[in-house]
C-alpha cells in the first residue's frame, strides 16, 4: 500500500528536484562540450577539457594548496573547537549564554567583512606570510562547524560516564581520550567533513588572504574565467563536485549520512 499523494504535490516535488539538480547537469554537460566556449547542450563530446586542467600548472598548484589549507585549517579548528565545545557543554550551568554564540560569529558576520578584517589583522597587522595566514583564516572560518557539530554530539553525552571513569582511577586527561572522545567520534568526523567542504569551496576569505604565487583552487577558477571562458571551468567544477560526492560516499558507507543532519 502506498500513501496517496496529490498530483500537484508530486509535480511540485519534481520541479524542486529539477531546480536543485539542473545547474549540476548543465555543468557536467558543458564540461564535455567540444567547443572553446562554455555552452549547453554540449556540441560534440570530448574529455580534453579535463586533460587541460592537468596541463595548466596553476590548477595543479592551487588544488594542492586548497587541500593542504583545508586539511590543516580544519585540523586547527578542531584543536580549538573540540576543547571549546567540551567546556561549553561540561560547564554549561556556570557559563554565560553568549559565550556559545561567540564561537559562531564567523558565520554570522558577512564573509567579506570577516575576510577583510583577517587581512587587516593577520596579513598586515601581524605580517604573517600568505600560507599560514590562509590556514589561520580558514581555521577561524570553519570554527563554528567544529564547535557546533562537536557540541551537538557532546550535548547527548552523559558526563557521569566521565565521572565513572575518573572514580575507577583514570586521570581526567586520559579519561577525555579514552572515554569522551570515542563517544563523540561521529560528531568529530561530521565536523571535519563539513569544515573541510566549507574550506575547500571558500572564495570570500581566500580572496583577501591569497597573495603572490599562492592561491586556492576557487580563486584560480575565478582568475581563469576572467581570461578564458572555455569549458575548463566546467570540468574543474565537475572534479570538485566528484571530490565532494566521493567524501559523502565514504561517510555514507562508514557512518551513514543521517548523523550529518542530526
Amino acid at each position: 500500500m502506498t500513501a496517496r499523494i496529490h498530483p500537484l504535490l508530486g509535480a511540485f516535488a519534481i520541479l524542486v528536484f529539477l531546480f536543485l539538480l539542473a545547474p549540476l547537469v548543465i555543468i557536467v554537460g558543458a564540461s564535455l562540450s567540444d567547443t572553446t566556449y562554455l555552452t549547453f547542450p554540449p556540441q560534440g563530446l570530448t574529455l580534453r577539457w579535463f586533460a587541460n586542467i592537468f596541463e595548466i600548472s596553476a590548477f595543479r598548484n592551487t588544488a594542492i594548496t586548497s587541500f593542504q589549507v583545508a586539511i590543516l585549517g580544519t585540523g586547527l579548528s578542531l584543536l580549538i573547537g573540540i576543547p571549546a565545545a567540551y567546556a561549553l557543554n561540561r560547564y554549561r550551568v556556570g557559563l554565560p549564554k553568549w559565550l556559545g554564540t561567540l564561537f559562531i560569529l564567523p558565520i554570522l558576520v558577512p564573509e567579506i567583512v570577516f575576510g577583510f578584517s583577517l587581512l587587516k589583522t593577520i596579513t598586515i597587522g601581524l605580517g604573517l606570510p600568505v600560507y599560514p595566514s590562509l590556514i589561520i583564516g580558514h581555521a577561524l572560518l570553519v570554527l563554528p562547524y567544529s564547535v557546533r557539530v562537536v557540541g551537538a554530539s557532546l550535548a547527548s553525552f552523559d558526563f557521569s560516564v566521565e565521572e565513572a571513569a575518573i572514580s575507577l582511577g583514570c586521570p581526567p586527561l586520559k579519561t577525555f581520550f579514552t572515554v569522551v572522545l570515542p563517544n563523540i567520534r561521529a560528531g568529530v568526523i561530521a565536523a571535519f567533513i563539513l569544515a573541510f567542504i566549507t574550506s575547500i569551496n571558500d572564495v570570500s576569505i581566500s580572496v583577501f588572504l591569497t597573495g603572490p604565487g599562492i592561491s586556492t583552487l576557487p580563486i584560480q577558477i575565478l582568475a581563469h574565467m576572467e581570461q578564458f571562458f572555455d569549458p575548463t571551468i566546467a570540468s574543474v567544477s565537475v572534479l570538485l563536485m566528484l571530490v565532494t560526492v566521493g567524501v559523502m560516499a565514504i561517510v555514507e558507507m562508514t557512518l551513514g549520512l543521517t548523523f550529518l543532519t542530526k
Binding site: 552523559d158 557521569s160 560516564v161 565521572e163 572514580s167 572515554v179 570515542p182 563517544n183
Partner: peptide, 14 residues
Amino acid sequence: DIGLVFQNYALFPH
C-alpha cells in the same frame, strides 16, 4: 579508590 554506582548507570557506551 572509591567505587561509585550512579543513578543512570554511567556505563561506557563504546
